[in-house]
């Protein structure tokens, strides 16, 4: 009798950590897996067109060239260079993101040739008048949120998705929580819902047109389009990405505040 019980007991003990994984642990595990799945591309450049739409459907356009440098033990370094609207052409923004610590940020104003260090408290403010807040476009580090696994469900195109709630752990966020859908196979982000400080549903972001880019370190998925709908104001913003390039040989020297003046 005892002999027959031992294997069962061993099996029970072995399966206990899995069964005892709390929703918080599972949420964190999914976030870490997604982060691992998208690491190793070293650097990335891409062109971005933003289309801002107001309630009446009037459109306004921004064109931005972006460069990102993947950092191993810190948040990524990124550069945004504006080509449109014409009055801000040549304006550049350099960001060193740091997870929970405040980001370092410099702005280059071409008319004055002035490089200005700016405060990074404005996480919840709109980025160039769009429906994207600075925090929506910032480097997505795992430690920036606390997670809660909600469920797994179908999420279109025959994909299955992990549905994970995340609560910002950094200061000055404009959100009480976010709910994200990420596919179970390749960890592609599909949808993200934003809830304002009062808990009301504020915005929904959807990713479309995924393509995979094969590098020696793996293949990476990037969406051609991101669509943000603000449910409270009726305004929306579309981001159209093109010319993705990876591992182009950028180094931290390209992400120097003194280099901002010679970008265009």
């Amino acid at each position: 009798m005892a002999r027959r019980l031992v294997p069962i007991l061993i099996l029970l003990v072995l399966s206990m950590p899995l069964a005892a994984e709390t929703p918080a642990e599972k949420g964190l595990r999914v976030a870490k897996a997604a982060d691992r799945r998208d690491s190793g591309w070293k650097d990335q450049t891409a062109d971005l067109i933003m289309i801002l739409r107001n309630r009446r459907g009037n459109e306004s356009r921004r064109r931005i060239r972006t460069k990102t440098l993947e950092m191993q033990n810190d948040g990524d370094k990124s550069l945004s260079l504006f080509d449109e609207p014409a009055d801000v052409k040549g304006t550049a923004m350099l960001t060193f993101s740091h997870g929970l610590r405040p980001d370092d940020q410099w702005l280059y104003l071409p008319a004055l040739k002035r490089v200005k260090r700016i405060t990074s408290r404005n996480k919840s403010g709109p980025f160039v008048g769009s429906e994207f807040a600075f925090e929506d476009l910032g480097s997505q580090e795992v430690e920036k949120y606390r997670y809660q696994y909600l469920r797994e469900e179908a999420c279109g195109k025959g994909w299955r998705c992990h549905v994970v709630e995340r609560i910002p752990a950094y200061k000055y966020s404009g959100y009480s929580r976010q709910v994200g859908w990420v596919d179970t196979k390749e960890y592609r982000r599909v949808k993200l819902e934003f809830y304002d400080r009062k808990g009301a549903h504020l915005k929904t972001l959807k990713w479309k047109g995924y393509k995979s880019y094969r590098l020696s370190t793996g293949n990476y998925w990037r969406a051609d389009e991101m669509f943000m709908q603000n449910h409270q104001t009726g305004k929306s913003t579309t981001l159209k990405w093109s010319n993705y390039r990876f591992d182009t040989g950028l180094s931290s020297g390209d992400f120097n505040k003194n280099a901002l003046a010679r970008l265009r």
Binding site: P102, D104, R117, I118, T119, R121, K171, Y172
Partner: peptide, 8 residues
């Protein structure tokens, strides 16, 4: 220049 969260 010292850059804080809201102070410069």
């Amino acid at each position: 220049q010292y850059t804080g969260e809201a102070w410069l």
